[in-house]
Design a protein around this nucleic acid. Structure first.
Length: 343
DNA sequence: AGCTTATAAGCACATATTGG
DNA sequence: CCAATATGTGCTTATAAGCT
């Protein structure tokens, strides 16, 4: 066995002060010498990825490829590549991820020159007219929330700053893929398997996806529609004071629907979600910095955590994870609760 | 089959931005 | 103001596809 210890960027202060590691784990040495191409990095959620390793991957559900590259040095003199949206020539499409892009929104529209003399490589860059998901090629943050997937119903042209994720025939549609790509699972996978530079498609194709089942797909799509509806209508013009809460709740429900489909053991689901503790989630239309309140250590699955019953019950955390609390303690808590007139 | 051309994936370089 | 780091562009190279 080898000790594997990691100091994450946000853990550097703690390391300097008291040599604290952000993460540590003993891993078997044999995995590193099995083959010449073995990856020496150990993902933080390695148990999660091991658990999901036998299922389907994104590659099974969708065509995943970058958008087009224009020519540079070899571009003919006077030939244009990208122009303003209002230009008379060219094809409408997407060239860059704008800083304020929301996952329910659409990247800035622009005119692209798709003529062969202007293009070095098309890949998935040509317009299809069919719904697709656009994924950022450059991470939107250094920390765990790196992905911003947007839904492009029109199937427009795109440059290599985006990855087009296109549903395969017979598989789930773009809305489902959109929800999956914005989920904590996809973001954790990216965080665990990529460096800080690019969202590499060879890696993302290997991302585990939930088993095929209408019992998963319907709730995910419904939750996705609900969140999209709330998040796109909750601008400053419309919102009352409670609107952001409703948006956040809908987002949590979408996450919970996706997580439910992955069906992780509670301990692993908790391990995965803890990756996002205190981390800003950009472009989601609400303030989002983690799932579990500080001090709540039990393995409460997300769908239980956000259920009304759980939120209302002060004893919830103990009742949902009775194995972590001795019967005596539970009994004592019940007595105490009764003494205060609850239940 | 063996050679030639095309494509995809990842990365290298150049420029921009940030921080000391 | 300079050095370090981040970001955008499009180039390089390995592999696949096409061709004779």
């Amino acid at each position: 066995m080898l000790w594997c210890r990691r100091v994450r960027e946000r853990g550097m202060e703690a390391f300097k002060e008291r040599l604290a590691f952000s993460w540590e784990r003993q891993v078997p040495q044999c995995g590193f010498v099995e083959s010449a191409g073995a990856d020496l990095r150990v993902p933080e959620c390695d148990e999660v990825w091991a658990y999901l390793s036998t299922g389907r991957t994104l590659h099974d559900l969708a065509s995943v490829a970058k958008g087009l590259d224009h020519k540079g040095k070899t571009l003919p003199a006077g030939c244009w590549t990208v122009r303003d949206e209002s230009a008379q020539t060219g094809v409408l499409g997407y060239a860059n991820v704008n800083e304020d892009l929301a996952i329910c929104g659409e990247p800035s529209l622009i005119k692209l020159n798709l003529e062969p003399r202007a293009v070095l490589s098309y890949r998935n860059g040509k317009p299809t007219g069919k719904p697709q998901v656009l994924l950022n090629y450059a991470p939107v943050a250094r920390e765990a929330w790196k992905l911003k997937a947007t839904l492009d119903e029109k199937g427009r042209a795109l440059t290599s700053r985006f990855v087009a994720i296109r549903p395969k025939p017979g598989g789930p549609g773009a809305l489902y893929l959109w929800a999956i790509m914005n989920s904590p699972v996809a973001n954790a996978f990216a965080y665990d398997h990529l460096g800080k530079r690019d969202i590499r498609i060879g890696t993302m194709r290997k991302m585990p996806v939930p088993a095929r089942s209408p019992a998963h797909e319907t709730p995910i799509e419904q939750a996705a529609l609900r969140y999209r509806q709330l998040a796109t209508s909750a601008g400053p013009l419309f919102s009352g004071a409670s609107a952001p809460d409703a948006v956040k709740r809908a987002l949590l429900e979408m996450d919970a629907a996706v997580l439910g489909a992955y069906d992780l053991p509670p301990r692993l689901e908790r391990q995965l979600l803890d990756l996002f503790a205190g981390v800003e989630r950009k472009g989601v239309g609400c303030e989002f910095r983690g799932y579990y309140p500080p001090g709540l250590d039990a393995y409460v699955p997300l769908h239980e955590l956000i259920s009304e019953d759980y939120a209302r019950s002060t004893l919830g955390r103990f009742r949902e994870a009775p194995r972590t609390v001795s019967p005596d303690v539970l009994a004592a808590l019940r007595t105490a609760a009764e003494a205060y007139g609850e239940e």
